[in-house]
Amino acid sequence: MQRKFLIIDDHDSLSSGLKRVFSLLGHSVETIETRAEAVELKDIDRFDVVITDLDNIDAIPEAVQSDDENNACLPEAEPHKSSEHIRAFKICATSFNRENFDETELKNLFETILNYKAQFIDQIERIKNSREKIEFEFPSAISLMHSILEYLTKRVEKIGVAAGGDSHLFIALDEAFVNAVKHGNKFNHRKNVRVAAEISKKEARFTFEDEGEGFDVASIPDPRDPENLFKSSGRGVLLIHNIMDEVKYNERGNRLEMIKKSESKTQKNQ
């Protein structure tokens, strides 16, 4: 089945390579250079997958942001100092066909994109001391977990927040991903999951959000209580709290925010 791709790339490295790859597979690929151009398209939802890779996302004034709400498939923009360098990468597949939803096809597309970026783009040294914003939005598909989380953990390691091979971080992200797809959206492909990471030298911030009903975090039984010894619920949340430095749920209980501080910074504070 032919898919429609939009690639927004201000340095051409990702767009030229992926355009060749997906065109050879029979897909339709359009490329543009800036987020502003994408906003002007108005019909961005006609694309099955939107890929954004910007070396320095433009700051958008607060007055303009309110008019930008219909462009959910684009990286979130925020006011920031002109001297601050923010790299933005996002894969959005919220318009992926769900009538004949093919999870294997979506999984293969994500793996192709992330493998290409990791192999050919992320190896290029960018401006040091930059901040990376990475986002994924997609229909509930548990099979995307490995490629997405592997990519995120490698970026965290590359930037220096965690040491290579830190399996604890992957475990926390794994729990959050499963909770969003399985418990939040109940594997419903018509509901989307949003995974975001903001990574700098000092910390990595992660957000997992689903479209489920949410839950009351306070109602989760404490797995450390002897009375709950044989209950499975609550163990994942406890793991996340033990691994991450900060954990916060929204009031509805469908969005989880976690912070992992840089190991060097943590050691200095001890």
Rank of each mutant, 00 (worst) to 15 (best):
V50F: 01
I8D: 00
L238T: 13
E62I: 14
S82R: 12
K81F: 06
E69K: 14
L25D: 10
K81L: 12
Q123R: 14
P75C: 10
L239V: 14
I148K: 11
L239G: 09
D174F: 09
P75Y: 06
K4N: 13
K107R: 13
H183C: 12
V49W: 01
D245S: 14
L24K: 15
C73L: 07
S167H: 07
E150M: 11
E213M: 10
K261M: 04
F47G: 04
S200T: 11
K191V: 03
R235P: 01
F208D: 02
T52E: 01
N100D: 04
C92K: 02
G253K: 13
D67T: 05
R224V: 08
F215S: 09
D45A: 11
S147G: 07
M244F: 15
R252L: 15
L106S: 03
H241F: 08
K261Q: 07
A118C: 10
V193C: 13
K158C: 00
R126E: 06
E246H: 15
N108T: 05
G26W: 05
I57E: 03
I171V: 12
K90F: 01
L25R: 15
K107A: 01
F208V: 13
K81E: 06
G17T: 03
H168Q: 12
S262A: 10
N192I: 02
A63R: 06
L18W: 00
I243D: 08
S82K: 15
E33C: 10
G253R: 08
V247C: 13
N97K: 06
F136R: 08
Q270K: 14
H168A: 14
N97F: 01
R252P: 02
D166P: 05
A36N: 11
I159L: 00
E40W: 08
V178N: 13
P226I: 01
D216T: 14
T112Q: 09
H80P: 06
R46G: 00
